[in-house]
Computed example of a mutant assay.
Amino acid sequence: MSSQVKELSTAIACRGISVRTTNLAETSFETAKLGRLWQKFYQNHVEHLSEGEDIYGVFHNYESEDLVGAFDVVASWNTANHEDNDKSSAELVTVTIPAGKYLVFTEEGRMPNTVMNAWEKAWEYFHNPDCAHTRTYNVDFEHYIGGNLEYGQLDLYIGIE
């Protein structure tokens, strides 16, 4: 795992399906929503994407700046790569990843373990008293390189000041 500061020079408009959850809810099979969100995304939307197209998991609308507050997650694709011909679907939402500064944690391997490992490294980093960066709690996102939700590279972008 590695991390580096990256400046996102332009915003990325994404479209996909969304849930609101908490980290606590995600620790129990009965209350976890993210696995079902990604399963639904994979079953209903991946087939409409080009092979190898990048996929984004966008985290936003943070209720608080700690691990107990609720937040929204959007399983999505970059709208720049698509015509908006799916206006009829009421379940689809649009979210914008803002340009700005991000600390990026990169992992490679089998999903969802790779995703969990990246988030654990990020939480560990930001909870260290010697942490050199401050999270914005505005928008964070998972970038699935090449659109592979089973095995591949994941870049976790955490918004920083």
Rank of each mutant, 00 (worst) to 15 (best):
L34R: 10
G35T: 11
E83F: 10
H48D: 02
N81T: 11
L49T: 01
N128G: 06
L67S: 10
I158K: 10
D155R: 06
A80Q: 13
N61K: 14
L49M: 03
E91L: 10
R15I: 15
E7P: 01
K40F: 00
N78G: 12
G69I: 01
L67C: 09
L154K: 06
V46C: 00
L37S: 02
E107D: 14
V73P: 07
E65F: 07
D54G: 07
S64E: 08
R36C: 11
I55K: 01
E47M: 06
E83P: 00
F71L: 06
A32S: 13
T106Y: 13
L154I: 14
N78S: 14
Q43L: 08
D155K: 04
V5R: 09
T21W: 01
V115D: 01
G16V: 00
E142M: 02
F126A: 11
T114N: 01
Y42S: 05
S2F: 11
Y144T: 00
L8R: 14
P98T: 15
D140M: 09
V58L: 15
V74N: 02
T10I: 08
T79F: 05
H45R: 04
W38Y: 08
N78V: 11
N113A: 05
I55M: 02
F59A: 12
G109D: 00
S9R: 07
A32V: 04
G69A: 04
S9L: 09
E65K: 10
A118Q: 13
G109M: 07
E63K: 04
A25Q: 05
R110K: 15
I145T: 14
E107W: 04
Q153K: 15
V93A: 10
K33Y: 00
V95N: 03
H143N: 07
S18A: 14
K87D: 03
S50K: 13
T79C: 08
I55V: 12
A25S: 04
Y157C: 14
L154G: 11
W77I: 02
N148R: 05
S88V: 02
E53I: 08
A118I: 13
M116T: 11
W119N: 05
K6T: 12
T136N: 14
A32L: 06
S3R: 09
